[in-house]
Computed example of a mutant assay.
Amino acid sequence: MGEILELDCVVIGGGVVGLAIARRLAIAGREVVVLESEPLTGSITSSRNSEVIHAGLYYAAGSRKAELCVKGRQALYAYCRERHVPHRQCGKLVVASNEDEVTYLEKLLKQAAANGVDDCYLIDAAALHALEPEIHGHAALVSPSTGIIDSHGLMDAYITDIEAHGGSVVVNSPVLSGELTKEGALLSVGGADPFEATARLVVNSAGLEAWAVSQNMRGLDPATIPTRAYAKGNYFTLAGKAPASRLIYPVPEPGGLGTHLTLDLGGQARFGPDVEWVDAPNYDVDPARSEKFYAAIRKYWPHLKDGALQPAYAGVRPKTVGREGGGGGDFVIQGPQATGHPAYVALYGIESPGLTSSMAIADEVWQLTA
């Protein structure tokens, strides 16, 4: 391996959350190196999602997701305006397809208010038709604060900030193993040019691989590592014009928010994700799954034509609660006190709304290590 590099702070994982953490630590004066196992940053989970800026409606009051989504959304909109990151606050409608689901919308409105989201309101079928003539339902909850973002543009801005404050991002550098020591941590890094490095602080923000990184970290109590589940979400694109100018969500399903209509910044419509529990990550989209998509979408857009959906892409959400537990789960952010080691911070279950929460998560990690 040769000479052992001496580093101050290493962030493992160059997804949107890892980059946000590295940015925050670099601004605070740490010398930061991001180690990303893939050839490109954000090429796994961060580029395989809906690119939605979430308002913070759904999450249990007092949960990390609720708190960090609301804080993160406010910070993210401000950052996007300041740094000219492409985004649009287009708003969202959660549509009740029958009378029974209207009760859910009423509960969701109260949940949103409890989370500090105070701009939501309910509309009836006539008002829904006036806003979005193609969308059908008994009622809808309007979320004006929901938006869409160019996730790659956001990550590029984070990287620019990291480098402007003396940090660096190194791709093709998987962390193979590590050891927590009295002085900090010793890491063994693979790739074309493998090396070993010591670090005073290691932040494990490896997304789907966070569990494996911790399992290979000698000196870490295995009891600190939570359970893991994989929820695969498949997406289909629409051939033709989008039926709405806002995001359209149905009433949620266990493990996800239902097969919803999202838009990219070019106006292209895509539907998803569904929820497919898998034993290991894979990114193939089975065209046959479109049958369930057609049925789910036609509950709120009955004019969807046969053959209009095309397989697009899939993402896998790292969860701490699987199907048996209802598919929910919260962010797990362990500072040195929780990991039992002053040099080690670990994040697990950073799924949606991770992108929206990224700046707030970064602030939390900084506070835990200050």
Rank of each mutant, 00 (worst) to 15 (best):
A199V: 02
A140Y: 00
G349R: 00
F271K: 12
T369P: 06
G91I: 01
Y79C: 03
A223D: 05
N216D: 09
R289W: 14
A61S: 14
T227N: 05
R289S: 15
D221H: 02
Y121S: 08
A113N: 13
P318V: 00
G266V: 03
R298I: 15
K232R: 09
E276I: 11
L122Q: 14
Q334Y: 08
A126C: 00
G167D: 12
A139Y: 05
Y249P: 06
S37I: 01
S290V: 10
S143P: 04
H303Y: 14
V16S: 05
L108Y: 08
G219M: 01
V10G: 09
Y77K: 02
E51M: 14
M359P: 13
Y344Q: 09
S245G: 07
G328R: 14
G137C: 05
L122M: 11
L263D: 05
T45G: 12
I361Q: 11
A28E: 11
R81S: 09
Q367A: 07
K182C: 06
L176W: 02
N98D: 11
S46R: 12
W301G: 14
P287N: 02
Y313D: 04
I53R: 05
Y59P: 02
V365F: 06
S357T: 06
L247Q: 07
D221F: 11
T103R: 11
D286W: 06
P243N: 04
G326C: 15
L154C: 14
P273L: 03
P311Q: 12
E196W: 04
T103N: 01
E67W: 08
P144C: 12
D221G: 08
Y104Q: 05
G56V: 04
I44M: 05
T160L: 05
L93A: 01
G240C: 07
S290D: 11
R48Y: 03
A296W: 04
H136N: 02
N115V: 01
G266C: 08
Y313A: 09
R88Q: 07
G56C: 14
S37L: 11
E51R: 12
F331D: 07
Y158A: 10
L304V: 08
G147I: 14
C9W: 01
R228C: 06
P250T: 03
R24M: 11
Q111L: 03
I162D: 10
R317L: 00
P250M: 10
T237E: 08
L122A: 08
A288E: 15
P194H: 12
A269G: 11
F331T: 01
N204D: 06
R298A: 09
L7K: 07
M155Y: 00
A296E: 14
I248E: 03
E82N: 15
S145M: 00
L35I: 03
F271A: 00
I12E: 00
R48W: 09
C9L: 04
V202G: 03
G18V: 04
H303K: 14
V285L: 13
